[in-house]
């Protein structure tokens, strides 16, 4: 079920403090299916905290987060974990692949965690590795591939469960310009073709230019830049 406006994920008046530091101070957010929204802002502005709250990793102190019509803040830990495994995908700055597993095993891992059999999970994993142009790396381990290749493997892993929302936290932060562009191009194309929404936290404007619109977070408050122009 969606909210009336067709919003997939929405947050209103989010507040979160760590000790006396207000990380979020009334932040707002919304995203539609298939939309790519960049979350920008200076270091320490609260953009990563916003992403963590939206993804159900960190509970806000107050405010509302609705995902497909469900109030996220009223779910318990187990329910939020299940949501993250099945409905959400994650891409971090440094891939965070499991070094002991091969690339195809890494990509198949989220499916294996939800009980999908190895053969089927790896077949789906291979499909996404082809989409991200890293199919030749199936048998390699993360230590044997480059940073750019590793990030594309991480994107394939984020997409393998056919998530409805992908959370990408500085996905190109550790890459050079060319690899960063390739990752962004493949990530946004794959997400749009799967009608998945992408919450893209970045401080790079050239990366944000791959989004459909931009939210700027400053001092824990958000501003939807689309409403300005």
């Amino acid at each position: 079920m969606m909210t009336p406006a067709g919003t997939l994920l929405a947050a209103t008046d989010l507040r979160k403090a760590f000790g006396t530091t207000k990380a979020l101070d009334g932040a707002e957010f919304s995203i539609h299916p298939g939309e790519v929204v960049a979350v920008m802002g200076p270091s320490g502005s609260g953009k990563s905290t916003l992403l963590h709250c939206l993804a159900g990793i960190v509970p806000p102190d107050s405010g509302s987060i609705t995902y497909a019509g469900r109030e996220l803040t009223s779910l318990n830990d187990a329910e939020r974990s299940a949501l993250r495994r099945t409905e959400f995908g994650f891409v971090f700055q440094f891939g965070q692949l499991v070094p002991e597993l091969t690339c195809v095993e890494n990509v198949a891992l989220p499916l294996r965690l939800t009980g999908v059999k190895r053969k089927e999970a790896e077949r789906t994993a291979l499909h996404w590795m082809e989409q991200l142009q890293v199919e030749e790396l199936v048998a390699k381990r993360p230590g044997e591939i480059s940073g750019g290749q590793g990030q594309r493997v991480a994107v394939a892993r984020a997409l393998v469960t056919a998530p409805r929302v992908i959370f990408a936290d500085e996905p190109t932060g550790a890459l050079d310009s060319l690899n960063g562009e390739l990752v962004m191009q493949l990530l946004t194309e794959a997400a749009r073709s799967a009608n998945a929404a992408v919450v893209l936290v970045t401080h790079e404007t050239r990366v944000a230019a791959y989004s459909d619109r931009e939210i700027v977070v400053r001092d824990g408050k958000s501003r939807d830049m689309e409403r300005i122009v």
């Binding site: 404007t205 050239r206 944000a208 230019a209 791959y210 989004s211 459909d212 931009e214 700027v216 501003r223 830049m225 689309e226 300005i228 122009v229």
Partner: peptide
């Protein structure tokens, strides 16, 4: 600050077109 934000949004709009 609003003037700067307006300009920022305009710049990013052009960057999206170029991208």
């Amino acid at each position: 600050d609003e003037l700067l934000d307006t300009q920022r949004a305009e710049h990013l709009r052009l960057m999206r077109i170029l991208t």
